[in-house]
């Protein structure tokens, strides 16, 4: 069996030979040196490893790398080059939404995933979107406030969309 796996990583086409069941997290961190995504639990419980696959938030620690074959993978290292990140960064700074910083990259990816689908989120929408990203420092309030402000003041950066929920 050919173990070559191809995907688009932060807008760059990449190919690697790897154990197909190797976690996407280990692949990103060890094979590509992208250490923004963190290993907090290795079991999909904390969200510190969250990245976007085809625009959706996933826990890279329990995503086998074969699952991203032919897909787009977007990490904090890709996001931080965008104007959307600049806006999130400004709002996170203002709200005091970063403390120890370990959950932050995953948290920012969760915010991006939300705003790409729902550019007018309610507080409840934001809390739901972050519910798989544990933070032990902030109590979430500042993070929720930061995302709320980014959605309001960053109008136009994310495609206008509204998620009606269920």
């Amino acid at each position: 069996m050919d173990n070559a796996i191809c995907f688009l990583l932060n807008n760059r086409s990449v190919t690697l030979q790897a154990d197909p069941l190797r976690s996407l997290l280990d692949t990103l961190r060890e094979d590509f040196g992208l250490t923004g995504a963190k290993k907090g639990c290795g079991e999909g419980e904390c969200g510190a490893c969250a990245v976007l696959v085809d625009g959706r938030l996933v826990n890279s620690c329990i995503t086998p790398v074969i699952a991203v074959e032919g897909k787009t993978v977007f990490t904090i290292e890709g996001l931080r080059e965008t104007p959307r990140f600049q806006e999130l960064s400004r709002c996170f700074a203002q709200a005091g939404a970063v403390q120890c910083g370990f959950c932050t990259p995953g948290m920012v990816m969760a915010a991006e995933a939300l705003l790409m689908r729902n550019s007018f989120p309610t507080e409840q929408d934001i809390r739901t979107a972050l519910s798989g990203n544990l933070c032990r420092c902030t109590g979430y309030s500042a993070i929720v406030a930061a995302i709320m402000t980014a959605a309001k003041e960053g109008e136009g950066l994310w495609p206008a969309s509204f998620d009606p929920g269920i």
């Binding site: 999909g44 959706r56 996933v58 826990n59 798989g132 990203n133």
Partner: peptide
């Protein structure tokens, strides 16, 4: 949808 919406977290439901 009601039961599914309460499973895991967004990242889990995406996978």
């Amino acid at each position: 949808k009601l039961p599914i919406a309460e499973i895991g977290s967004p990242a889990i439901r995406n996978a």
